[in-house]
Each structure stands twice: as C-alpha cells, then as structure tokens.
Write a protein that binds this DNA or RNA. Structure first.
Lengths: 280, 280
DNA sequence: CGCGAACTTGAGGCGTGTCAACCCCTGTGG
DNA sequence: CCACAGGGGTTGACACGCCTCAAGTTCGCG
C-alpha cells in the first residue's frame, strides 16, 4: 500500500486504477486481442496453399501480380504450409538454406547469438513478412528464427522461386524489392542503435509496430506486445529494465497506458514528437 | 616535454619514438599506401567497360560466370564508368534510383542523416563492392553515398541488370547473393551496435577492414584508414573521442601501432581475442 | 610557411547498466 | 476453488562506461 501510494505520487497524471477503468471502458483488451483471434485461427489449416486466395496477397511477396501471374505461381511455386508452436525454431544459424518463409499467421523473432549468450534480436516479423532471406548469400542461415506465438508459415522453396521469378517479371521485381526493403529496414535499425536515446528507440519501436498492425487492418492504438521486455531490449540495444522504465515514463507523461503486454497509445502525436529531431 | 613524459609513463609498453622507428623500419608507411597507389591509378580511365577484363571480376558481381556469360554481360549490361573526387556524392537520400554501382577504385561511405544532423554511417565500401541496393525497394535511394577518396564506379542500370539476370542464371544468383550478404552484414552491425562494448566494436571494425583488404591482395596488417575518427565513430555508434582513446589503448596494450590514419596491426590474434566471447 | 581540420588527452557529468527486492499475472495441482 | 510456484514486469539504489566540453598537438594542404 505504501509502495502504491508512492507510485501514484510520482506519476501524478494517471492513477493505476484509473488506467484499469479506462482500458476496460474502451474495450481495450478485447480490441488488442484482435490480431490473434482474427488472424491466427489455429483450427483452420488448409492443406492446399494458393497465394491467389490468401488474405495476405496484397501485403506478401506477390503484391501487384495479375490474375494470370497468380495462376502461374499457384501452379509452379508449390508452397506447403508449416505449423510452429510458440517457442519453436523455424531454422537456426548454420542450418542449410533451401527455402524462404512467408508468415501466414503468428509472430516471429529473428536473432543472432554470441558465444557468451548475448543475443541480438534483428527483427520481429508478422503476417505477410518474409523470413530466411539471410540464407541466400552463403547457402546457410545466419540467424535463428523463432515463433513467439503459435504460428504458420508458407514454405517457398528457393530454387522454384528463382525459376518462377525468371518468367514472372513482377515476381522478380517483388523479390528484389523485398530484399532491398530488408536492407533499408536494417539501416533504420542501425540509425536507431547507433544514435538514438532510449526514449527515442522505444518510441520508434512502438510506432513501427502500430504502423504495421494498421497496415493489416488492426488498431494502431490498442496493441498487445507479442514479445517480452527482454526481447524488446535486445532488439533496441537496451536492458529490459530500461525498456520497462521507459514504458512507465511514457505512461507518466500521458503518451500511453501500459499494463504488462497491453499497450494503449493515447497520444501518437506526442510519441512521434520524440522522433521529430531524428527523422528526415 | 612534460606532456610527452606523462604520456610515456602511462603507455608503459611502447615509447612514441620507438613507434616511429618501428614503423619506418618495417616500411610501414609505404606498404600502407599500397591500396591507393596500386588500385586507384587516377590516370587510367578506359572509356569502354568490360567486366570480363576487370581485375575485380573475381570479387565483384559477376563471380563465377563462364566465359560465354561474361561475353553476354559485357554486351548487354552496358556499364559506363563514373568518376568522383573525394567528398562528392554518388547519390543522396531521395534521389531517383535507376542504377546500382560497383566500385572500381576508391572508397565510399554510405549514411543516413537525421534532421538534427546526427548521421549514421551504414557502411564503408571498397573496390568490388556494390552501392545503391537500398533504392530498389522504393525506387528512391534511402541513404547517401559519398566518395571518401577519389573514386571510380561502374554504373549498372537496374533495368538492364534485371533483364540480363533473367537470362543468365548465375548472374541472377549472384545478385540475390549480394543482396542477401548485405542483409547479413547489416545484422552483424546490429549485433555490434546493440550489444558490444567500445573496445569490441573497434576491434571488429579493424579486423573486418583488414580482412577485406587481404581479400583484395593487400596487407592485412599495415593499413591506412580512409575515414576520419568521426566517421568511424558514427559507424560504430561511438563518439570520435572514444574511438581515438580506444586506438590509444590498443597501442598501449601492444595490439597495434597507430599514427593518425596509419595503423599497423601487430597482434591480430590479440585483437581477435577481444571478440572471442561475442562471435559464434 | 601558416592556417585549419583532424586527432589526442584530460576532467567531470550523465544515461544506461547492474543488482536486488518486490509485485503481478498465469498456470498447475491438490 | 484455492494455494502455490515461477516467470515476467516494475522500481529503487548505486556503479560505471561512454559522452561532453575543453585545451593542446599534429598533420595536410594551399
């Protein structure tokens, strides 16, 4: 009780129980679970995979293909689907590379490990995003990819993808774009890691996540983090305590509500302001 | 004089004048200039560009092509060559993307800028390496590429590259590999920026540079830095003073001799030991 | 030869890491 | 339905590595 009152004194803007009320009133928790319940219906696992009828076809690799081209890739790029439960690895560093993976449902993290256990998370991936591009260069995967919730991926054998890309120009173009965008994304992370402060990093992380969720038709303000503070910290080059403190500070400043993994962004403009000085 | 003696007291392993003598004795400075004098003969600028007869053909994009394939790309991928003096930009963020560039001679840095002038150097590129892959995704370049010494690049129009890659499978494969390797390289930098200490970062930087120079037939121990402390710092997520101090500390520990931009790595194994705990 | 940029070095401050205690949720078994 | 265990999250106190600011030195270039 004393610790509680001490807490409310410092965060003199929002009381904890107030947060609770607001979150529930806005049916925040329900909305935040939308991503999982709508996009990841674990009961429905079609054995046959057709890009043309996939709900992610406008986000995933075959963006902008014509109907005829869709037919072609449905026919020739026989992608099977693979199911992973939370915590399972899709591949590990050193594994032979022979396919790339498009996330159909769920959430992944990719990371590189060091001998002494310092991990570096290199990215968090959600529906429609590709994993495994790191393996093309050497024929072996250079990172590990792990499902951080029950997930399903489309397996796209690399040999077939290469072959089809030669015939379907817009697929070739999309593949190159995907590779290039990954490079650009990494440059953004380098800017973040190399020259941003803790608050800027966390703000950038949240806004990026919110943006990608909105692209997929979900709320950009009510989100449920799929990853732990430690994983966020690893991605952002911070310790988990710093991530936690920064969330708390944002809440104290009225930018968002945080409650474990549930985040309600109440002032996206304010969050964006934190990045005003850093973004072009 | 007093400052000098103070300095020699702390660095109780090597005296400054001793360094000077040793460097000269090993004809360090001459050797270290090799990269520039041999690889960048500014007087020789052939107007006609043929990959098949380029001295970098085993390092650059067309690695492993057959003679027939070389003929094809010489014919169809009409690369012109472009000359840039030190400080000139090859392209800037926002410029339209229509070609990628292979460095023929010289040295580049790529970087992203933020509003308030915080730059993040995303890489240093030397002969045989590609620049501009970041533009494929959006059709506009996302970074700026600047020559940090007088340089020449081969201009590879992207449209033609795409077309030729469809017919020459191994070129397609090499392009994909180059894109993928860039992603992997970026992941390595993310590990560096996200979870390494200043000394580890600088050691990794030096060893990487030495490695790439050796691949090109130059000394891996005597090198001349093409970039300033500030640029190194920007790349490594450190301030220039920290970079300078770290060099000095390495010298005090007998790992290398440093004298402005001239570096003589005397104990590569010792340098590598600094990374033992971090590399897989 | 002299100027300015780049580099080195020092002293002190600050932001983030470290270590530790406590709390809150979830899931499990009685 | 409750008790309990354990992992994840929060918060505090303190330490330390890197940054900041400043002065002095060296070097390259005009």
């Amino acid at each position: 009780m004393s610790s509680l009152s001490g807490r409310t004194e410092r965060m003199n803007i929002i009381l904890p129980m107030e947060i609770d009320r607001l979150m529930k009133a806005a049916s925040f928790i329900e909305a935040a679970h939308a991503y999982e319940t709508v996009v990841a219906p674990l009961h429905a696992v079609p054995s046959k995979v057709a890009c043309s009828s996939c709900h992610l076809r406008e986000i995933c690799l075959p963006v902008g293909l014509t109907a005829a081209e869709f037919d072609l890739i449905d026919l020739r790029m026989v992608a099977e689907r693979r199911k992973l439960s939370r915590g399972a690895s899709l591949f590990r560093a050193g594994d032979r590379f022979d396919a790339i993976y498009a996330i159909w449902t769920g959430f992944f993290k990719t990371f590189v490990s060091s001998k002494d256990g310092r991990d570096q998370v290199t990215g968090f991936q959600m529906g429609g995003e590709l994993i495994g591009l790191d393996g093309i260069g050497t024929g072996r995967h250079q990172v590990e990819a792990m499902a951080i919730e029950d997930s399903q991926v489309c397996v796209i054998p690399y040999g077939e993808l290469e072959a089809v890309a030669r015939d379907v120009h817009s697929l070739q173009r999309q593949l190159h774009k995907a590779l290039s965008r990954e490079i650009v994304r990494d440059h953004g992370v380098m800017l973040l890691l190399g020259s941003m402060h803790a608050e800027e990093r966390v703000a950038a992380f949240l806004l990026n996540l919110a943006h990608r969720l909105r692209e997929r038709g979900f709320s950009a303000s009510a989100l449920v983090l799929r990853m732990s503070r430690e994983e966020i910290g690893s991605y952002l080059g911070l310790k988990l305590e710093t991530v936690s403190r920064t969330f708390s500070k944002f809440q104290a400043n009225g930018l968002l509500f945080v409650r474990q993994r549930q985040i309600q962004i109440t002032d996206p403009v304010g969050l964006q302001h934190l990045l005003d000085s850093v973004e072009a």
